[in-house]
């Protein structure tokens, strides 16, 4: 197990290096630079700035310098957020984004699996139809429609919840962003669970369990749920990706101090180091989620063995 994890983590390093390399050269080929402003700076000022940030040296030298600093855990200085290093920006923003994302995925998992199981056990009844119908709506309504609409309803009309603003100690501030983030993955998980649960409940060993006279609760919880969760486990990595994408919008609209807004802003501002830092954080997260998924599936499915 430990050997497997080590091999997988080592195997992820070349992938990460490839991602960093592609992103580094991609963003550098974009027209414009980090010091472009509405009123152009004098040429010698730009030259001095370029020299200060090392942008005047050949591109491959900048690339190797960046990699060397990266190996020491240094993401470099941000070009736009003066006086901040990218490491500092990530250290401040990441906990906010990670908390929001983790809560959203946890809720999506628990509620989604629960709803999916209930719908599967009542197949063809109204609760099943309601689950299918509502899940289509939840998947189809984009977060940038949902969050303003929820804000309009619960914030401006009913005055129940704050529309924007952020106080990390107040639970009320979490409600709308978390609800917006968790609904699409929740709907997908509910549909996946429903489909695989219906499949499992038809299988021979579940029929045997019924024939033995076991109560429904025991059959569902002890025999059926575990194999039914396998597709849900493999959906976890896309769910994390989906939540990341959602957080770009949710953090922008709700004005949260997370890292979601940095990627788009960084790309638009040609804040090279900030963009690369964000790409590295998100890629690492996604790659490790892939590993978590494989371990989870091996734990759920006795036919799967982890082999390095």
């Amino acid at each position: 197990m430990i050997r497997y994890l080590l091999v997988r983590l080592l195997g992820a390093l070349p992938t990460l290096l490839a991602i960093v390399t592609i992103s580094f050269f991609l963003i550098r080929f974009a027209p414009g630079g980090p010091f472009d402003q509405a009123r152009a700076l004098p040429a010698d000022v730009v030259a001095n700035l370029n020299a200060a940030y090392g942008l005047d040296r050949p591109l491959w030298q900048q690339y190797t310098t960046y990699l060397r600093h990266l190996a020491h855990g240094d993401f470099g200085p941000s070009f736009r957020y003066k006086d901040f290093s990218v490491t500092e920006l990530i250290r401040e923003g990441f906990p906010v984004s990670a908390t929001l994302g983790a809560i959203a995925i946890a809720i999506a998992l628990v509620v989604g699996v629960g709803v999916g199981v209930v719908a599967a056990l009542h197949r063809g009844r109204w609760i099943d139809h309601a689950t299918i119908g509502l899940s289509v709506v939840a998947i189809a309504v984009p977060s940038f429609v949902l969050l303003p609409a929820l804000g309009l309803l619960f914030g401006i009309e009913l005055h129940w919840l704050p529309v924007a603003g952020w106080d990390p100690t107040s639970i009320r501030d979490y409600v709308l962003p978390v609800v917006t983030l968790c609904l699409p993955p929740l709907a997908y998980i509910a549909r996946l669970t429903r489909a695989s649960m219906i499949e499992v409940m038809r299988s021979a060993y579940v029929r045997t369990a019924f024939a033995k006279g076991l109560p429904l609760r025991t059959i569902v919880l002890k025999h059926a749920l575990r194999p039914a969760l396998i597709p849900v486990a493999s959906y976890l990595a896309p769910a994390v990706a989906m939540t990341m994408t959602g957080s770009l919008v949710v953090e922008t609209i709700a004005g949260l101090p997370g890292i979601g807004r940095y990627l788009v802003q960084g790309a638009l501002n040609r804040d090279y180091t900030l963009v690369l830092g964000m790409v590295i954080v998100y890629s690492t997260l996604l790659i490790s989620m892939g590993l978590v998924v494989d371990v989870l599936i091996a734990a759920l499915d006795p036919r799967v063995r982890l082999e390095a």
Partner: peptide, 20 residues
């Protein structure tokens, strides 16, 4: 497998910046 491990949304964002 490798491609689906990448945050592709970010590559699209980078591409739209690069290609206008």
């Amino acid at each position: 497998e490798i491609l689906s491990g990448l945050p592709l949304i970010f590559f699209v964002i980078l591409l739209t910046v690069v290609f206008g």
